[in-house]
Nucleic acid binder design. Structure first.
Lengths: 293, 293
DNA sequence: CCAATTCTCTGACTAAAGTCAGAGAATGAC
DNA sequence: GTCATTCTCTGACTTTAGTCAGAGAATTGG
C-alpha cells in the first residue's frame, strides 16, 4: 500500500471523526452523561443481560451497575432477574426509556440529514454511494477466515444454510444425498479441509477442499451468507483453499457448479478456472472447471 | 432526501465511528489523558499561540493552562512569551515532545494501514477512492456562502489571489486595469453584489454580480481557491448570484471568459449559459455567454 | 498618562468516568 | 452437601474533564 493511500485514509479519519464524532457527542447525549447515553442505546427493545452490556461496552461491572441505578432512578430502565439463572439480571427499557430512545433515533436521523442537507441531489447520490462503498469495504476488511472442523457448529450452520439456498435456487431442488459426496470425513484433515469466514463473531461463509487423488483437489461447498454478499468473501475463501491446496502439493483443482449460480461461475472464471468437459457425473452440475496450480 | 439515504448515512456513521473512533482512542492516546493528547497534536512543529490553541479546541482558558503545565512537567512542551505582544504566550514542543508526536504519527499511519491491510490491491483502490469522495463531499457540505462588502478583507484577499492566478494562466498575463471594470463601487449594493465562499473560516472562493442595465446582469470575478477545487463551490456561487439576479428582477445574465479557463466554460455550459457573440470588448475574453433567467 | 481591555494563570470548585476490593446470592462440579 | 465459581451490587477510592471568579501583567485607545 502506498503512502498516498495511507495519507488519504488518515485525512478521511480526521474529517469523518470531526463530523460524526463532534456532532454525535453534542447532539445525541441529550444532556445525559456519555456513559448513561451509551447504555440506553445498547439496551434494545428486547432488553439485554447486564453481563452482555458489560461485555459490549467493555466497562467495569461496578460502573455498569451504578449507571443502571442512575437510569433506574430516572425511570428509564428496569433491571430484573430473568428466568433461568437467578444470578443473571436483565435490563429493560420502561415506556419512558423507550420514548427517550425514540427521540434519540429522531435526532440520529436529523444528524444524518444534516450531512445531506447542504448538498444538491446529484451530490447526495454520490455521497450516499461513496459511503456505502466505504462501509462495505471496511466490513470486508473485518472478515476473518479460519479452518474449522467440518462438524463444528459453525460449519454445520453454514452447510445447512447453503443446502437450504440450493434447494431454493435449483430448478429441481437439492438433495445432498443425491449429490456427489463431501462428507465430514472427506472434509477433515488430511483428507480435506473446511474453512469458515467470520464477521462480527458470526459465520458468514464457507468452502471446502477435498483431496481427490495425489495431484487433484476438489473445491466444494462454496457459500456466502446473503447478509454478507458483495464483500469478496467467496474470493477470499477460494484463494485460501487454493493456498492450502498448493501447500498440500496438489497440481490442479476441480470444481463443478449449477447453471443457476451465475455469480459463482463469474468468480471462478475471474480467478483463472477454465471450463472443461465433465469429469464426474454430479447430477446438479452443468459446468465443470479446472485450474492448474 | 429519501429514507434510504438517511439509513445509509446512519449505517456509515455507526460503522466508521466504530472503526476509527474506537481504535483512535485506545491507539493514539498512548496512556495520556485525552485533553493532553489533543493539545500535543495541536502544537505543531512551529509552536502555537496559547490563545489559538484555546480557540481551536474550544477549551476554557484555565483548563488549557493547566494542561500545558502538565505537559511541561512531563518535559514535552515549553511555553514562553513570543516576541511582540508580551501577554501572548506560545507553546513549543521540546525534542522529547517532538519525538512523542512522531510516535503518534507512526501509530496513526499504522491505524490507517490496518484498514487497508486485509484488502487486496483492487479493493484498496476502491476504498481509498470512496474515502476521497466522502471526504470531498462532506467538505463541500461545509461550504458557506455570504454576501460581503467588496472591499472587505475576505473579498480583497480573494480578488488578489484571483488576479494572481489569471496573470499566471493567461498567455498575455493579466492587468486588472486593462480589463473591463468591476470596481468596488460596481460590486456594492445596489449597483452589484459580491459573494464569498467560506470553508473552515477561510475565504475559498468568490463571485460578483454587476447590474449592467435594468434587465441585464454581469457575472464577474468567479474564482475558487486551488485548495478547495472539486467541491462544487463555483457552481454554488454561480447559483447564488443567479438567485440574487432573479430577486433583483433581472431577465438575463452575461459573462465572458478566457479560453484558458476551460473548467469555467464547462461549468457555464452545464448551468445553461449559451455562447453568444461578443457583447463587449473585454481584451482578455475569448468566449461570451448569456443565460435567460 | 489613565482606563479599559486582553491574555494567561491560579485557586477552588463540580461532575463524570473509571478502578478496586469485597459482600452476598445463585449455580455448577463433584 | 460442599466448595469453587459466577454474577451483580455497594462502598471507597482516583483521575479526567470542565467551569468560574478573579489576580496580575501587558497592551491599546484616547
Amino acid at each position: 500500500m502506498t503512502e498516498r493511500q495511507i495519507e488519504q485514509v488518515r485525512r478521511f479519519n480526521r474529517i469523518v471523526t470531526q463530523h460524526v464524532g463532534a456532532l454525535e457527542d453534542s447532539y445525541l447525549r441529550r444532556g445525559r452523561p456519555l456513559g448513561q447515553a451509551r447504555l440506553l442505546h445498547e439496551i434494545g427493545p428486547e432488553g439485554i443481560e447486564v453481563r452482555a452490556l458489560r461485555d459490549r461496552l467493555k466497562l467495569d461491572s461496578g460502573y455498569v451497575s451504578r449507571l443502571l441505578r442512575a437510569l433506574e432512578t430516572q425511570g428509564l430502565v428496569e433491571v430484573r432477574s430473568g428466568k433461568g439463572d437467578g444470578r443473571v439480571r436483565k435490563a429493560f427499557l420502561t415506556p419512558k426509556g423507550r420514548s427517550e430512545r425514540a427521540t434519540y433515533d429522531t435526532l440520529s436521523d436529523e444528524l444524518a440529514a444534516s450531512f445531506l442537507a447542504p448538498l444538491d441531489p446529484a451530490q447526495r447520490d454520490r455521497l450516499v454511494a461513496a459511503m456505502a462503498e466505504v462501509e462495505c469495504l471496511l466490513r470486508a476488511g473485518e472478515v476473518e477466515l479460519r479452518f474449522e472442523a467440518a462438524d463444528s457448529a459453525a460449519a454445520q450452520s453454514c452447510l445447512e444454510r447453503y443446502f437450504g439456498e440450493l434447494a431454493q435456487r435449483f430448478e429441481l431442488g437439492f438433495d445432498p444425498a443425491r449429490s456427489n459426496s463431501a462428507s465430514v470425513a472427506e472434509m477433515t484433515p488430511p483428507a480435506g479441509f473446511f474453512i469458515v469466514a467470520w464477521l462480527d463473531g458470526e459465520p458468514v461463509g464457507c468452502g471446502a477442499l477435498k483431496l481427490a487423488d495425489a495431484i487433484t483437489g476438489e473445491i466444494k461447498r462454496m457459500w456466502t451468507s446473503p447478509s454478507a454478499r458483495g464483500l469478496g468473501i467467496a474470493r477470499k475463501v477460494l484463494r485460501a483453499l487454493e493456498d492450502k491446496a498448493r501447500e498440500t502439493g496438489l497440481a490442479r483443482l476441480h470444481l463443478e457448479t449449477n447453471r443457476t449460480l451465475s455469480e459463482a461461475q463469474a468468480l471462478y472464471r475471474r480467478e483463472g478456472y477454465a471450463e472443461v468437459a465433465a469429469f464426474n457425473s454430479e447430477p446438479y452440475a452443468h459446468h465443470w472447471f479446472e485450474k492448474r496450480l
